[in-house]
Design a binder for these strands. Structure first.
Lengths: 193, 193
DNA sequence: ATAACTCGTTGACTTAAGTTAAGAAATGAA
DNA sequence: TTCATTTCTTAACTTAAGTCAACGAGTTAT
């Protein structure tokens, strides 16, 4: 299992066996059952999540309705806003498949950064990459219609459409579940003619 | 002018006079005229922009139409996606007010990081903050109607509505300029009754 | 096995955004 | 100033998303 992590890290920096052992000794690998809520609205947490296997999602409850805004799957990291802002969380995080997650916190990170400054470089580079990537995603969202967003998702993350309930996908695409249903029917209809 | 920068940095780390002098000696402060294009589509660039004063925007040209997706004003940083991906840029960056901008590049950064590791911490923390903040913005965008987005912007960045042309604001809000016009008229109508 | 729920789809209707076109208002240049 | 261009608004019409309700399929719990 750890190999997945080290393969990922090796794309950015090379680690010695000693360094790898330090990581393993932190003992932060967790198996989480589907349905587990990792973070509640209003909660103060300092945990970050690195998904090794499985899928977690962030969602809000607005006027009693769940609004899913993001999914994190294999090799994706989520540091909740509340960890940065040190304010109560505005959203929930739940595990939507049985998953293996690395759970870390800022104190641990600082400790590792002090021992191996290389890790801070890694985290800086990862953050900068994610930020730029997310900006592109946001741009694409803004400049696309719901239908284009769906077709785009079909290309870029086809797995998500399989593994995630439609009503969660709908709010992820910024629309209502009924609209997603109709939009899909519309696409099929177009392709027939 | 530099004081603006150092005041900003001091929120995150404290700098000695020596360190400040190093920054100044890099001589990266630039005054940019309104209308200047800082980055063209298809261009490979390695420049990052820190806006000390003024405003820059990113925009795409899609089917011959400009789509503005982001604005950066005082104390905001933009590292274009192409700097990270090392691929040609998909968007343009232009300066929409006479501005003072700090222009840096990865080589300069590495040099500074080596002299003062503290700066890499600063950049990591800034990136992580920006990432979490941007995620919240994206979430809010997804879960709001165009009208709510406009009202939200009125609260959170009222200056933008003043300093930016409406048709650029419209695509920033993910709609057409005509829709923004009608939406504003609708809001005024509501408040009358 | 049955009841209760969740989930996805469909239909009828409402509302608002997209489209196209025209014109008014503001801005900039000659 | 005057002309041209850009920006913003309005109108008429089309398209699609939102809303509300109903239904069937699948799941879970009792």
């Amino acid at each position: 299992m750890q190999d997945l992590l080290f393969d990922f890290i090796s794309k950015y920096v090379s680690l010695t066996e000693d360094e790898k052992n330090i990581i393993i000794s932190l003992n932060t690998f967790r198996t989480i059952k589907k349905g587990t809520i990792l973070l509640n609205e209003g909660q103060n947490s300092n945990e970050s999540y690195f998904v090794l296997k499985g899928c977690i999602r962030t969602y809000y409850i607005i006027d009693g309705v769940e609004k899913t805004t993001a999914f994190y799957t294999e090799m994706e990291v989520l540091t909740p806003h509340c960890v940065i802002s040190k304010a109560p969380s505005e959203y929930y995080i739940s595990c939507i498949e049985d998953s293996i997650i690395i759970i870390s916190n800022p104190e641990m990170e600082v400790e590792v950064f002090n021992k191996f400054p290389k890790f801070e470089s890694l985290c800086r580079i990862l953050s900068e990459e994610l930020l730029a990537k997310q900006q592109i995603d946001f741009d694409k969202f803004k400049t696309s219609s719901p239908e284009q967003r769906y077709l785009n998702l079909l290309q870029s993350r086809p797995d998500l459409i399989q593994r995630v309930p439609q009503h969660q996908l709908a709010s992820f695409l910024g629309i209502k579940p009924e609209s997603l249903s109709r939009l899909k029917a519309r696409i099929i209809e177009k392709n027939k003619v």
